[in-house]
Design a protein around this nucleic acid. Sequence first.
DNA 1: CTTTCGTCCTGACTGC
DNA 2: TGCAGTCAGGACGAAA
Length: 273
Amino acid sequence: MPELPEVETVARGLAKRLEGRKLVKVETRRGDLRWPFPKGFAKRLTGRRVDKVRRRAKYIVAELDDGNALLAHLGMSGRMLLSKGRPELETHDHVIFETDEGWVLRFNDARRFGMMDIVATEKLEKHKLIKGIGPEPLGNDFSGPVLAAALKGKKTSIKAAILDQKVVAGVGNIYASEALYRARISPKRLAYTVQGDRAEKLALAIKIVLNEAVAAGGSSLRDYVQADGELGYFQHKWRVYEKEGQDCPDCAGKIRRIVQGGRSTFYCPSCQR
DNA sequence: CTTTCGTCCTGACTGC
DNA sequence: TGCAGTCAGGACGAAA
């Protein structure tokens, strides 16, 4: 599932083939993903040069030479597929981009929870979907005190709180469990009780868990493109996620699965408090 | 304001 | 072998 590390890896893979390249052909194969494409979507992108591809939260941002940016979210099942030359199209290939070097990028998204929009690059942070998103966890403005402040007064569980993109950007269901495990904090603990040293530990755990996953993504992809052209997915080394019933890697406990807010949480009840 | 919950969608998997 | 039912999950937007 695309969380920050997967999106980061996809963005890096895209950067390699798109930055400095002109989009010579853009085609949408249906009128909407999660929402309709903006008016004139393909036409507005065609002929544009891509200056930069980066990530913000779980969004991919491709800055163009006309002051606009393509904003894309992979949703649950969105995949970016790169190939040299025109491939056989597959089911759920919804958007096709072709560069002046002959690279073809397909956005394939079975569940269509993904989205694409065009936004003035300068106004990106004011975009409806970006506005209000919290700090980048791997950036300098995320720290124990910053996290503590965001959790202050929050009556939900700490698990639900760090899934909230307003608290911290880019953490999804998998890395929420992984970060809490690493910080030895119970996912059931009330968010407002995570202050001081606990918040410090959790902020650090979030950084470590995400950084490790980004590194794994980078190192496991040759040129960031797998044999099948798919960008951004890689072998994960989860400690607790989907490990229900298995031994805790660090104590005598067994990993348990609970449901919080309709989402699975995995944790060790004996070493997470 | 905060928090919870339903919803979108399809593929993978389970059980009969 | 087939088919119905369940589950997965990001994040909006409605409801409480």
